[in-house]
Structure formats: C-alpha cells, structure tokens
Design a protein around this nucleic acid. Structure first.
Lengths: 329, 329
DNA sequence: GCTCGCTGAGAAAACGTTTTCGCATATTGA
DNA sequence: TCAATATGCGAAAACGTTTTCTCAGCGAGC
C-alpha cells in the first residue's frame, strides 16, 4: 500500500509513479494514465506524513478556542472546517478553556505537528486568548477574538448590525425606539449602542445590563413603571434579553408585534425560533466568518500576502415574527 | 532547530542525542543530562512528522461529528481533547453535517494523515453517522451515536437518569408524577419512559411530543383542561420542554416549586440557569463521556485490548430550585 | 555518418527522526 | 599480560514520499 508496492505492480520505478500521480516530470501519456488507473484500482493513498516531511507543509492547521461550550465558536469552527476540507487541509481542535498553561501545551503540540497556520477564536472580540501567539513560526489569524495589530483579525460588524436593526424598526413605522443591551464594558455593546444612537437619535434610550433574560424582564419592568413615554420598538443586545423582554411584555398584556416590535441579536436559532412569537434578529454570519478566516490562514501559509488589520464582516437581518412588518426582499 | 543542529551544538552524534532525549540506549549519565540541558536551552522540539513516519504512530486522532450546532457534542469534544492532550495526542475536528460524501472526504483525509484512531460522535444515540467506519485500518470508538456491535460505544445511561429524576421527585414528597417527553421514535425517550414507569408506577402518565418549549406548554394546557387528577411532580424529557412547562404553569398561577416540582433533562446550563426558577435537571456527564471515549481510542491504538459493546455512563442530578426539597448530599 | 536535442524513465538524495548494530576504549578476571 | 566483558558512542538503515540529476535511446539536421 505504499508507493513502492504500486511501482512494483505497475512495473516502473517509484519516481515514475510519483511523477505520474502528481502530473510532474516527463513521461508518455499512456504510462501516466496506466499508473493512475492502477493507483485508483488498488486504492493507493500517499502517506501525508512522508509528504509533509519533505515539503514542510502538513496540510494541517490548528484551531484554538477558549469557548468550548459557547454558541459563538461552533459556527466559526464549522466554517473553518468547511472552507479548508476542499483544500485537503485538516483542522486540529484545541480547547484551552482559559488556562494559559493548557494553551501553551496545545500550541507546542501544534507546532510539533508542523501545522501550516493557526486560527485563534473566542467568545468576545475585545478579549484575547490566554496565550501569546506573537512570534510563532507560522501565520496566525484571529476570528471573533482580539488579535495583534500586525495580524489579520476577523469580526462581525457590530455597528452595521445595530444600524440594520434600528433601520428596520424605523422602516416598519416604529418611532419610539429603545436599546436594551449587555454590559457597557463590552466593546461590541458600545459600538452597537453608538450605531443605534446615530440611527434612532440621541434621545433614544440605551439601557445597559447583563446578558440574560432576567435583565430583559427587569428593563421592561423599569420602563413600564417609569411613567414616561413607552417604546414601540425595542432593539435587544442579544436573543436572550429579547426573550425576557417579550415574556415581560406578554405578562403586561402588551401585544408583540402588534403594539411593540422586538428585535434581537445573534440569531441563536434554538432560542429565536422557540420564542413566541419567533424572534426577528441580527445574524452575525459566524460561519462565513470562519470560512474567511480559514481561507486567509491558508493564503498566508502559502506565502500569499495579506494586509494586516481588522476586517469587519457584515451582519444580516433575519426576519421572523416579533417585529411584524413586511417580509425582507 | 533539528536534531542535527542540537547534535552539533552538543558535540555528539544525532543518534546519541536521540537516545539521550528518549532515555534509550547506553551512555554516560552526565552526557545524557548535558544533552537534555542543551535541548531545553535552545528549545529543541522533535518534528512529529518525522517521528510519526518512523513509528507509524501520528499521535493524532480524528473526531467525526454531524452535530456542528448542537449542544451535545461540544462537551464531548471538550472531554476528548482534554483527555488526550496529556498524552500528546491532538484531535482532528471533522464536521460532516449529514453529508455522506463529505464524511468520506474527511475520513480519507484522516487516514492519509495516519490518524491513530477515530471517534465518531453525533446527536442521537440511535442514529449512526452517514459514513461507514467498519473495516478501517484504525480503531473506531463511538460516543453518543450508534456504533457497530463489534466496536466500543459510549452513551449516557438514560434509564438510570430517568430513575434518578423520578426517585428525586418521590423523595421530596411528590406522589402524582407525570413524564412529558419527546418523540417516541427516540430510543432514549423509550428507555427513559420505561424507567420512569417502573419508578413512578404504570399508572403515571407519559406524554410524548416534540423537543420544544411549545410542546411543554401544550402538554400543561392539555393536563389542566382535562379535568382529571393534576400532577404535582413533572419529569420533562429535556430542559426546553421543562421551560415550556414552567412558563405554562406560571401563566396558570401554579407555583413552582411550591405546588408542583419540575425536573428537566440535559442540564443545558444556559437554559437551565435562566429559567425562573432555575431548573433542577439531569446531567448526562457528556464531558466525562468524551474523556472515556478518548482514553479508549488511545488504548486501542496502542494495542491494548478492550471488550466491544455498549458502555452506559451514569447521569447525575443537578439540583437547582424548580423542585424544592433538600439540597443533594 | 556525426552531433545535437529531445523523450522517457530510473537512481539517488533529501526531509528529521529512531533504532540496531558495530567498534573502539576501558575495566575486569585469571 | 592477555583475553573476556562492559561501556560509551557513532554509522547507517529505515520510514514513504518528492525532486533533481543522469542516462540511454532515438530521430533529425547538417
């Protein structure tokens, strides 16, 4: 099952076999075809280790994540894997939790195995992994986690996503908008809030809290008991908050989407689809983000140049029923 | 940075270096120590490709999953990775969706890369992956997906988990138990239902539906409008159903846990902790399951024998507040 | 007829390890 | 003092590829 066996069966030398299979070198077209046919017949597959040893390309990359349970890196991982399998590149999964020592162990293991590159991914765009990836002998690409200025980093365009949401609320006729979101310590939160303000106007309230249903509940309780003008369009910082908001509205007899439109963020399908009514929300295209990161690390590994810096990928609006209004076109 | 460089620096031959670092062969203890010291100083790390080529062990295994978005395989994957990193084994992540062609591509790629073994994992214990893993030249272990009778398969003990739940409800004084669960087509559902029946009595109702909040809602509506005896202890087939059940009870003014205890299944933390009240539920120990699968495939790869068959790992009860009753000891 | 260039294919080196074997030198025993 | 054995280390083969170099044969041009 090695190239030697194949050579013996074909009655040629190993060099001829290698050249035949790789479309290299000079040889009679008929010889090449015959060798290829025999190779297919006996199911010969070259040993990637031997090949990698010689070419110093392992057709392997490492995917480092500290978000083993989260819902963000899963789509990213799927996108990476999907993008690279077509190029014969396999992905090492390295779950490092938040442990610097474990991170170092994994990075060392990946380098030992001669990965062609590394993708770092996490759960927050403004936090970096607990491991130093600068000065590694292989290219590093960051996806949904903070990178270095000299490297390539992919992230979702929070501002554009927030603008999309606010714009949609206005488009369907909502005028009294409010933004209920997570902790102001998150860069994403601040960027979305700023974009929301510039769409909805500076007088539109932004309520900061935590990433939970209970905060959505609480925020509605606060708004409804305040006695001021009540909103008719609510943009929530994630789908969980939106869920809490909708539940709280229902408990108060406020009809969604007839009286108030609610829009979420993340398109966490398992939650968004089960909310009553199903949640209109912003999708960060994380799978696409993973795909781009995969292709980028591959390009860098092959020596193709790429401009360093932050690349923001657009979000998209997913229309369900919590806003009412027209279908998207 | 190869062993040759190290040998030159140390003033010995490469064979001596190799033997020194691997604690093989005969040599002066002082020589061995000196070589090790120099290796550590210049940060020499042997090329795993070259090593693998010779030993036909790549210290690499493949993890095949068709559950890229699900919440089940994530903990499994984390467990596998965690168990194997200590042994210097890295894990190839292969997301094959439900595509047989993609599955074959990934399996071939893994074999090319000389993986020492393969772990197959999925989202249902009674469905197999869309790819044939029999007759592969490397050991295969199944985790949370259907395997062949000749292979080793790990799964959660559904019956034991269900018994744990029913038993807990009885222990805290509930007498009128009901089980609201998923589709009867799932083996897990049937096993849990049987175990529930043998704990709660055959007269205790089992309601089959779908895996969604809305079904939990619906089931409560049915029970409460039926006019029969209303349950005081509800064991739900998953946390989503439990969530729907609790919401529906609250809408009817029924207090949880004072009047009715509700227990879920899966311990999907992000949901279980956000439910009001937080959900008491059954945890399938999926990370532990992944760990066991990882150690098993490693054992098989090293030639250690293992008895084929299905291994059921016990579930554990996670007590929060939806049941009331005492804390667990 | 001789050289040149082209074609087809094989020999061998190389990648970075590990392991076996052999060869000096040192030590022991008689 | 000499042989036998133990010790320390290096040479070389091996793993399975790819790639470069070489070489024989052959047809064509002069």
């Amino acid at each position: 099952m090695t190239i030697h066996d194949l050579a013996r069966v074909a009655g040629v030398s190993v060099s001829t076999v290698s050249k035949a299979l790789n479309d290299n070198g000079r040889m009679a077209a008929e010889t090449r075809a015959r060798i290829k046919r025999i190779a297919a017949e006996i199911g010969f597959r070259p040993n990637a280790l031997a090949r990698g040893l010689l070419s110093s390309r392992s057709f392997t990359i490492g995917l480092l994540t500290n978000d083993t349970y989260g819902r963000f890196t899963l789509p990213v991982m799927a996108g990476v894997s999907e993008a690279l399998v077509d190029h014969g590149v396999s992905v090492f999964l390295c779950a490092i939790e938040d442990d610097p020592a474990l991170g170092k162990v994994h990075v060392d293991a990946m380098l030992d195995k001669q990965v062609d590159g590394i993708i770092a991914t996490g759960k927050r765009i403004d936090r970096s992994l607990p491991v130093d990836l600068a000065g590694l002998p292989v290219p590093v690409v960051y996806a949904f986690t903070a990178g270095t200025p000299e490297s390539v980093t992919f992230t979702a365009d929070d501002a554009q996503g927030a603008a999309l949401a606010a714009d949609w609320l206005k488009k369907i006729g909502r005028r009294r908008l409010v933004h209920i979101t997570g902790p102001e310590t998150f860069v994403s939160v601040r960027e979305r809030a700023a974009a929301f303000a510039s769409e909805a106007g500076d007088e539109a309230p932004v309520l900061y809290g935590i990433w939970s249903e209970s905060w959505g509940h609480q925020a509605i309780a606060d708004l409804w008991s305040a006695g001021g003008v009540r909103p008719d369009g609510i943009f929530c910082g994630n789908d969980q908050i939106a869920r809490g908001v909708i539940d709280a509205l229902r408990e108060r007899g406020v009809k969604v989407p007839e009286e108030v439109s609610v829009i979420g963020f993340d398109n966490w399908e398992i939650l968004a689809e089960q909310t009553r009514p199903p949640l209109t929300t912003i999708d960060m295209n994380l799978k696409e983000l993973g795909r781009e990161a995969g292709l980028m690390v591959l390009a860098l590994a092959e020596g193709r140049p790429a401009e360093p810096g932050l690349r923001k990928l657009p979000c998209k609006l997913v229309i369900r029923q919590s806003c009412g209004g027209a279908r998207a076109d």
